[in-house]
Design a protein around this nucleic acid. Sequence first.
DNA 1: CTAGTCGCCGGTA
DNA 2: TACCGGCGACTAG
Length: 165
Amino acid sequence: MSVCIHTSWGDIVMEEKGGALRSCTLPTWHRAPRRPFKVTGVSSTDGVVTAKTLRDVGQFAKACFEGRAATLPSFVFPDGPAFHRKVWKALLRIPAGRTQSYGALARRIGHPRAARAVGQACGANPLPLIIPCHRVTAAHGALGGFSCGLAWKELLLDRERDGAH
DNA sequence: CTAGTCGCCGGTA
DNA sequence: TACCGGCGACTAG
């Protein structure tokens, strides 16, 4: 029922149901650990996960942390309030290697003053990595926040930027 | 550049 | 109704 991506920064757990992801949780790191980040393996926490799911998720995670464009594994679009869903949909349209500010995203979905509410929706995203809330930054270059700790956001953006050379 | 203020909006208790 | 954010724009220093 769940896939585990082992990394030097701890395990990333993706809950899966019928071959489709429903949630993704990563260990919280407010500051980056000293050791370099590395994906060390992928496994399922029980015998139920199919080999295909395992392979898809593993490849996605790899690509994700190498900054390469990755095919999304199949996932169920999360349930939630209409506004949140609107934000999450918009997130899926930000390509790897690019970022957009909370305010700009707010304008894009037709709520020009709702920058802060956009932040809320990002924080409520049940599928980080898949739904790329890390690509939303504060205006004028500041990083903004990240629910699992800013270290991840920084890592992901760095890798995507390098990968997008 | 930093620190503080103030207005903003949508979700939740 | 009140409160609280992964914000942003605007001041002062």
